[in-house]
Amino acid sequence: MPTRRTTPPDWVITRRRELGERIADCRRAAGLSQDQLADHVGVERRSIQRYERGERDVGFAVLLLIAERTGCEVADLVRGIKAGPGGG
């Protein structure tokens, strides 16, 4: 896998962490372990851990599968996560 040439800006990291927290909240509300969600999504448990900690970007297809399995809407997962450095 190619390595990222530049570190993402701080605002991207912040937004990624916010998304990760929402994924974790939805997973827990659905009564799922990280292993169970990983099995459904088709990734390793480590990937779920990294998504939830905001250490890894979640691809759109994976986000759709997470939403479907947890019963959360994709819009609810990303709602309120502002784009851009000023949040605009």
Rank of each mutant, 00 (worst) to 15 (best):
T70A: 01
F60R: 11
A24M: 08
R53E: 06
E73Q: 13
E73I: 02
R69W: 01
A29T: 09
A83D: 11
S47E: 11
Q36C: 02
L64C: 15
E68M: 04
T14F: 05
P85S: 15
V43P: 08
A67P: 01
L65F: 00
R28I: 10
R22L: 08
L63D: 02
D39G: 02
S33N: 06
R16I: 01
E52A: 10
R4D: 15
E52Q: 10
I13Q: 08
G42M: 11
R69K: 15
A83Y: 01
P85E: 15
V74C: 07
G86N: 09
R79S: 13
L64E: 15
A38T: 03
G86I: 04
R17M: 11
V78H: 02
G86C: 00
S33R: 07
R46H: 11
Q36D: 13
A83I: 06
P85T: 09
D35T: 15
L77F: 02
K82G: 06
R45P: 05
A38Y: 01
I23M: 01
P85L: 10
A75C: 05
A67E: 03
E21D: 13
E68G: 02
I81N: 05
R50N: 13
A75M: 04
E68D: 09
S33L: 09
L63T: 03
A83S: 09
D35G: 08
P9D: 10
D25V: 00
D35V: 12
V74P: 07
V43T: 11
L19K: 01
T14N: 11
R46I: 14
L19M: 11
E44Y: 15
R28L: 11
Y51Q: 08
V74N: 03
F60V: 15
R53T: 14
F60N: 09
E18N: 03
A29Y: 01
I81M: 09
S47K: 06
M1V: 13
D35A: 13
G86F: 02
T70E: 00
I48M: 06
G88V: 12
V43E: 09
R28H: 12
R53Y: 08
E44P: 09
I48W: 01
T70I: 00
P8G: 09
D10I: 10
I81F: 06
G80Y: 01
T7Y: 04
A24Y: 01
G87T: 10
